[in-house]
Amino acid sequence: MEIILSLLIGILYAGGVYLILRRSLVKVLIGLLLLGHAANLLIFTLGRLVKAKPAFITDELSASAVADPLPQALILTAIVIGFGVISFAVVLFKRAYDAVESDDIDNLNTTDSLEA
């Protein structure tokens, strides 16, 4: 299963990289989202997989049988921060779109000349 996950990570990274190389700003944002997923999955996989044993303290606890809680905690933080970044970026994009009337990044270079 680790091999499948590794492949998935590769696919997510490839998709993300491809999208942030686009000219459309929306695609760039979606690409960022994909890269975020890819990074989360990477950390998760590298934390080693343990099936179906959440890290809860129970009476008969054995360390090897539960998932490592630390990567999970890190990813949790990452997901939330990622959401903050993306939501801000999306709103910012909307504002830029209203001003420039385009989601083509190349047009954003020349905003100075567009403004009257």
């Binding site: 990570i9 490839a14 190389l21 996989t45 590298l46």
Partner: peptide, 21 residues
């Protein structure tokens, strides 16, 4: 061109993941 670069990035990440695992 972009697809090639992206594909290579993906392959590299997969390879790195496998190496660490």
């Amino acid at each position: 061109r972009d697809g090639l670069v992206a594909g290579m990035a993906g392959v590299m990440m997969t390879a790195i993941t496998l190496m660490i695992l």
